[in-house]
Deep mutational scan, measured.
Amino acid sequence: MAAAAAAGAGPEMVRGQVFDVGPRYTNLSYIGEGAYGMVCSAYDNVNKVRVAIKKISPFEHQTYCQRTLREIKILLRFRHENIIGINDIIRAPTIEQMKDVYIVQDLMETDLYKLLKTQHLSNDHICYFLYQILRGLKYIHSANVLHRDLKPSNLLLNTTCDLKICDFGLARVADPDHDHTGFLTEYVATRWYRAPEIMLNSKGYTKSIDIWSVGCILAEMLSNRPIFPGKHYLDQLNHILGILGSPSQEDLNCIINLKARNYLLSLPHKNKVPWNRLFPNADSKALDLLDKMLTFNPHKRIEVEQALAHPYLEQYYDPSDEPIAEAPFKFDMELDDLPKEKLKELIFEETARFQPGYRS
């Protein structure tokens, strides 16, 4: 834990890192770190609560700039109880001085990944967590956004079992017609939660990839272990087919990539493993919904509104309290091709509203 900075004593240090967030945020305490930044909790002297502050230093890398800009653009436009918001952003007053960006968010005690390492969940908890994931996802999908990296560590939890989806750095506007060349190379989302079509096709992607990830998360809540822990690309596919069985001819016809289709045709026939054999203690309604989410063919996979209306979630289902976005989200430009200098300018502009004396 960093010592509390005395008023006016300059930035606090946390594990050798400068955290320049005073005077409003003090009493910093280390939480963890990701690929390009550290997260601390801090005391907000204005709202009198502890908050989470993520320090991001992305400006050396085009990919990190892209992810940072995506996350900020999306989260500043989203407003939903099951999606983490941005409360404040701290950065230098000029673009030349801006080396880091500090993002202030609600402090959540833990995440689903940490929880599943230590606790076996009751059916009631599984049901409530799944409902909140789908409630947040309904809003995301209504904005025409794909999260693309749903996994237990991106689901934040607090002691009252509130759940918030975080990390929109890989999110995209849904565009089933656009052929994202190089899709697989830039697709760094965790393999275990990846839909089979991501490994088999490169053309376009749809909201059904997020539903697949939610199915993987439900299976993990039922058993405290990942359902498809593939060691590499082909191993991942083999794990999936080992449980779902061989795809039907109709399902194979959806695979545009001939090499991928021929690979699947070359494999020995596998039978589907019954879900109640894998999860003998699970609620039968939970397994019915799991089956509809972990469907090989993305066109037959359940959609988020149908999933919310499934009998497993009937005690929570309330369409009048499951809000959607006001308007579909649009990125003005494809960020993939922009140089990091341009992305830095866009991050600077996007964060201006939090600067003292800002006038829109």
Rank of each mutant, 00 (worst) to 15 (best):
A2G: 10
A2L: 01
A3K: 08
A4W: 10
A4I: 06
A4R: 10
A7I: 13
A7G: 09
A9G: 12
A9C: 00
P11Y: 02
P11L: 11
M13V: 12
R15G: 12
G16Q: 11
Q17C: 06
V18N: 03
F19L: 15
D20G: 01
D20A: 11
R24T: 05
Y25E: 02
Y25L: 00
T26N: 14
N27T: 06
L28Q: 14
S29C: 13
Y30S: 11
I31K: 15
I31G: 02
Y36Q: 15
G37L: 01
M38R: 15
M38N: 14
A42P: 05
Y43R: 06
N47T: 14
K48M: 15
R50F: 04
V51G: 14
I53T: 00
I53L: 11
K54M: 13
K54T: 06
S57G: 15
F59P: 15
F59V: 14
T63C: 12
R67S: 13
T68C: 09
T68K: 11
L69F: 01
E71M: 08
I72K: 06
K73E: 11
K73G: 08
K73Y: 10
I74L: 10
L76I: 01
L76C: 07
F78N: 11
R79A: 02
H80V: 08
E81T: 00
N82A: 10
I84D: 00
I86E: 01
N87W: 02
N87G: 09
N87M: 02
P93L: 09
T94K: 11
I95P: 06
Q97K: 14
D100L: 13
V101I: 11
Y102M: 07
V104I: 12
L107A: 08
L107N: 10
E109T: 04
E109I: 02
E109R: 03
T110I: 10
D111E: 11
Y113T: 04
K114Q: 11
L115C: 00
L116D: 04
K117T: 09
Q119I: 09
H120K: 09
L121M: 14
L121S: 11
L121W: 02
S122D: 01
D124E: 14
D124V: 13
H125W: 02
Y128W: 07
F129V: 03
Y131I: 03
R135T: 01
R135W: 01
K138T: 08
A143L: 13
N144P: 04
N144L: 12
N144W: 02
V145Q: 01
L150M: 14
K151N: 08
P152V: 04
S153W: 06
L155K: 04
L156Y: 06
T159Q: 06
L163Q: 15
L163D: 01
K164E: 05
K164Q: 02
K164D: 06
K164F: 00
C166E: 07
C166H: 05
D167V: 15
F168P: 01
G169S: 11
L170Y: 01
P176I: 08
D177F: 07
H178I: 11
D179R: 11
G182W: 15
E186H: 02
Y187N: 14
Y187D: 12
Y187L: 02
A189H: 08
A189P: 09
R191T: 06
R191E: 10
W192G: 10
W192N: 12
W192H: 03
R194E: 12
R194H: 09
R194V: 09
R194N: 03
E197P: 05
I198S: 08
M199W: 07
N201C: 05
S208G: 04
V214A: 05
A219H: 05
M221D: 06
L222V: 04
S223V: 09
N224A: 05
P226E: 04
I227Q: 01
F228Y: 15
G230K: 01
K231G: 10
H232E: 04
D235Q: 08
D235N: 13
L237E: 08
N238H: 14
I240N: 13
I240C: 12
G242C: 15
G242A: 10
S248I: 05
D251Y: 15
L252Q: 14
N253V: 07
I256L: 09
N257D: 08
L258S: 07
K259L: 06
N262C: 01
L265N: 08
L265E: 04
S266T: 01
P268Q: 10
P274A: 07
F279P: 01
F279H: 03
F279M: 08
N281K: 12
D283C: 07
D283S: 04
D283Y: 15
S284G: 07
S284M: 10
K285F: 10
K285H: 12
L287Q: 15
L287S: 08
D288N: 13
L290T: 02
L290Q: 14
K292I: 11
M293Q: 02
T295G: 04
F296T: 01
N297I: 15
N297Q: 08
H299D: 09
K300L: 10
Q306M: 06
A309Q: 08
P311Q: 07
L313P: 09
Y317N: 14
D318C: 08
P319K: 08
S320I: 07
S320V: 08
D321M: 04
D321W: 07
P323V: 08
E326H: 01
A327F: 00
A327V: 10
K330M: 15
M333L: 15
M333F: 04
E334D: 15
L335R: 12
D336S: 00
D337K: 08
K340E: 09
K342T: 11
L343E: 07
K344S: 03
E345H: 02
L346N: 10
L346E: 13
L346V: 11
A352I: 08
